[in-house]
Write a protein that binds this DNA or RNA. Structure first.
Lengths: 120, 120
DNA sequence: GCCAATAGTGATAAATTTATCACTATCTGA
DNA sequence: TCAGATAGTGATAAATTTATCACTATTGGC
């Protein structure tokens, strides 16, 4: 029962879904791209998430080759994340997704909220 | 503890993440767009998912205004799903995401699989 | 009568994801 | 010395998502 542990990866869309699946990942990429590179900065931008989850998702993004991590041997310690070339090439598409969302904001918000008013 | 039940929706990207969050949703949209409209057809295209989850995710897509559902009063019953205008306007962007995934397929697959060989 | 196909729903269990709390360790400033 | 900021990790609990199994109901074919 519940056999599959390895994801199904048939096409490009599946690969994208795999690397972006995670509640805060798109937002992390977005903010790193905006220039917020240090963990503490990212935490301040995304206060709704605990720092634990952010670190975990940053680690996954790093393991998936989307994010680089540089540890500066200073005191107090300083760490900076950055986008890899791979992630940089993804950003324009993500921006288009965002633009689509912005353009249909009213309609989307309305339908999303309907599901919370009348829980099925 | 664990307070938030309502999603955070600051920007277009959050809205998109909200409506596409679900293991099979992108794939469902993709196949409906390809012309596979009946539940049984979609099941055959996505045999890895149980029909239960597919129905549930189709229902969510419908509630989010991405999918239409027509029940034909026939016997045996026939149901056909279709994309709304909203979803149709999203497809080009999803196709670009897919193209990005295809273009970086090798690199992505390699890094995704690494995480399964050396489980952290 | 029994089986198959159609399109579902309900109950429950397993897996996964996210949250919460409690820690480590170093240095700075009051 | 104590608090705060830095960047984490470990244990555990809660929420959520997905899977599995068992059903409903109709019709046609054998």
């Amino acid at each position: 029962m519940y056999e599959r542990k390895i994801p199904i990866l048939n096409c490009g869309l599946d690969l994208v879904a795999e690397i972006l699946y995670g509640k805060w990942k798109i937002r992390l990429l977005y903010f790193i791209n905006e220039g917020y590179k240090r963990p503490s900065e990212l935490q301040r931008r995304i206060p709704e998430a605990s720092h634990r989850v952010l670190f975990m998702q940053l680690k996954e993004l790093e393991e998936h080759g989307l994010v680089t991590k540089v540890i500066y041997p200073e005191v107090p310690p300083r760490v900076e994340y950055g986008l890899t070339e791979l992630a940089q090439s993804l950003m324009p598409v993500l921006q288009q997704l965002g633009q689509w969302g912005d353009a249909h904001q009213d309609q989307l918000l309305q339908q999303i909220m309907k599901r919370y008013e009348q829980p099925s």
